[in-house]
Computed example of a mutant assay.
Amino acid sequence: MVLLLAFVPQVNGMSKDEIVKLLMEQIVGMGLKVGLVTLDAGFYTVEVLKFISQFKFVIGVPVGDVKIYEEFDGEYTTNSKRYKKEEQVKFRLLVYGKEIVKKRKKTVVYFARATNLDLPKREVLKLYNKVRSPIETSYRNIKAFLPFTSSTKFIFRELIFVLAMIFYSLYTVFKNVMTREEFRLLLILCFLDDLSDLKDFIFNLEETLINTIDLFLWR
């Protein structure tokens, strides 16, 4: 079961390590203990690696960055031109190949993972897939709870997504006892009185959520 506990509105100029730090601050602020951090290859930067090294982690690595196109399990040091040699990050690099059929021809595509786990290579890769796959699936499922809006306000559209996240998280709790359509009906019944005056309901909801997210952005 995947529960969505934190979110960060991504604005222009925000670095990837800032996003990760803000998310972790929210999680730790809830009194939760971080057992494992998994990130996709889009977050592979020296700054992110330095930050998540305080936790157990597995992060996707673009194979083109490490330029290793064979099975590999060993120590690797980043070679970012933005940092001096002593500022680079060392980690355990895992590279594995997967055979795919492309244009009726079999070819091997390589994938890489960075980690600090002291586990067999196969177990690390299996753990990463076990954690990441439900997350990717949950993001697609969240869209089923997104209401249509023609609003061009960034904060309001962000709010709509937050609501969808909340509804999806609630659904994951109840999905063993009801279908998604039954859960949607339950939501409608819960808001039925407010929806009797739809115009005022939407206006008040928009105003409240915009103020809430606006305060969050000023943290």
Score class of each variant (00 low, 15 high):
F174A: 12
L185K: 15
M178Y: 00
E181W: 02
L186G: 14
E206Q: 09
T172R: 03
N204F: 00
C190L: 12
V177K: 01
D197C: 11
T179F: 01
K199G: 02
L205S: 09
K175H: 02
E181C: 10
L170W: 01
E181G: 12
L205P: 11
I188K: 15
L198M: 06
E206A: 13
S169L: 04
S196W: 00
L185I: 13
S169W: 00
E181Q: 11
S196I: 01
L189A: 15
S169D: 05
E181M: 12
L185T: 15
N204H: 05
L189Q: 15
L205A: 10
S169E: 02
L195R: 11
L192Q: 11
E181V: 09
D193L: 05
L186M: 14
F183R: 02
F201T: 05
Y171L: 01
L170E: 02
L185D: 14
R180K: 06
C190E: 14
V173L: 11
K175M: 00
L186H: 13
N204V: 03
M178H: 02
L195E: 10
M178K: 04
V173Y: 07
L186A: 15
F191E: 02
E181F: 03
E182S: 13
E182Y: 03
L192E: 10
F183Y: 00
Y171E: 00
I202P: 05
V173S: 10
L185V: 13
D200M: 06
I188V: 14
D194V: 12
K175L: 01
C190P: 15
R184M: 10
T179D: 04
M178T: 06
D200S: 13
F201Y: 02
L192A: 12
F183C: 08
D197R: 08
D200F: 00
F183V: 06
T179Q: 01
D194G: 14
L195S: 13
L198N: 09
D194I: 11
S196H: 06
L205E: 07
S169N: 04
R180H: 01
N176S: 08
V177A: 09
T179W: 00
V173K: 08
V173E: 12
F201H: 04
D193V: 09
F201N: 03
Y171I: 02
C190H: 13
